[in-house]
Nucleic acid binder design. Structure first.
Lengths: 218, 218
DNA sequence: GCGATGTTTCACCGCCGTGTGAAATGTCGC
DNA sequence: GCGACATTTCACACGGCGGTGAAACATCGC
């Protein structure tokens, strides 16, 4: 548990509306005196002074005294990059929903077989146990695999590989993949996760136990 | 003054030690249940629940219910990028001093002429007033420029351009640049800014007035 | 020198956010 | 169904942080 206390500390420096306004005002790279920054942030000179002191102490700003003026500026490009990244986050709502719901990432139907994290994990687990052999775009059950199918009561069919949309790794498809998904649904190891999203699948309690046994056992 | 209140809001979401620990624990991309995140952050389950709720509401995390467990994960790559940028900031101290002091950025001697922001501003200002014509790596005084030199009492010399180290833009160099700097120092419009840094220059009060007049007037 | 201006320091107050304990909700194993 | 477990909700008290006013400090123009 090696903490990185600095992360929260840096964030807390930006987490104030007045300091945010100052940093945004300085984002162009120009140096501005304390008074202008106070006006930009809409706070009194005293408040601004303390805010600026904190930002300098935290290494976000550099200060440069010139006569009775004190010019503040962004310390370096990394500070600007962090501010930009947070700005990107803050103005993100439109894209926020573009990402597929987490349910679809975890487990879903891909045409007629199991995809998502669970589908990839199943393919990996069966391969790790030597039940399936994967080579390039091809896959087939080994002898052990055929015995396992029989023990599970899953009809033996040819399997293929399908590149996963969210995981970018292959999962089991083809007639064999269809048979496995049918088996999982039939034995109520999987169920529909959401009425509004018919492709999303969720594990049942029995299903979790089955996957734990199937994937974890050496 | 178009605020971007979201920036401070996003930062405040990260600005808590417990939430920082949670985000760091999730930074690998894996999804973890609330209990594990509570343990990772070293807080009680109630506190963790509220922290996680805030992170989800703020769009930093996505939650996915599976039975009595609730799995949380980083919402998307942009969140990860922002966290990484802040982490970069937090672990930056060694490099912090690598950047040239602000004094050197503002005004300094470059061999024998004026460089830094002030040098670039002077070159731009003279060009904008039609006193200097810049073309590629070449520069020369115009007729108006020669009159201005005479009025200032600066001897007329050929000028060259020098690419600025910090500004990445050209400033005036060569014999003319040297004469200008000598004039500015001689009339006490500029002075040494720091004993420890002989190249750093600072404006005197008179110098500020002179630059304001020289640069701002149409 | 003097007043004016830009900036900082100090002490005080109010508020928001967090931790905590008790209790409610939803889900699993039996 | 019942107890166990993971998680959430609620109400409350504490602490820290920011805003404000008064005053000190530094510098410029004259």
């Amino acid at each position: 548990m090696s903490h990185q206390p600095g992360l929260a500390r840096m964030a807390s420096l930006i987490a104030d509306p007045a300091r945010e306004a100052m940093l945004v005002a300085l984002a162009g790279g120009r140096a501005l005196p304390a008074g202008e920054l106070a006006a930009a942030a809409g706070v009194s000179a005293q408040s601004a002074s303390r805010h600026l002191h904190k930002l300098v102490e935290g290494g976000l700003l550099q200060v440069w005294s010139q006569g009775r003026f004190r010019y503040y500026r962004i310390a370096d490009e990394r500070v600007a990059a962090a501010i930009e990244a947070l700005c990107d986050l803050a103005t993100r709502p439109p894209r926020q929903r573009k990402r597929p719901p987490a349910q679809l990432c975890f487990a879903r139907c891909c045409y007629d077989h199991l995809a998502g994290e669970l589908g990839v994990a199943l393919a990996d687990g069966l391969a790790a146990r030597g039940l399936v052999r994967m080579a390039g775009q091809e896959a087939r059950f080994t002898g052990k695999g055929r015995a396992w199918l029989a023990a599970q009561g899953i009809p033996r069919e040819d399997i293929a590989l399908c590149m996963d949309w969210t995981e970018r790794r292959p999962h089991l498809a083809g007639p064999g993949g269809r048979a496995i998904l049918a088996h999982l649904l039939d034995r109520k190891l999987l169920r529909g996760a959401d009425k509004a999203e018919p492709r999303a699948l969720a594990l049942t309690p029995k299903g979790r136990a089955w996957f734990a046994k199937t994937l974890n056992r050496k």
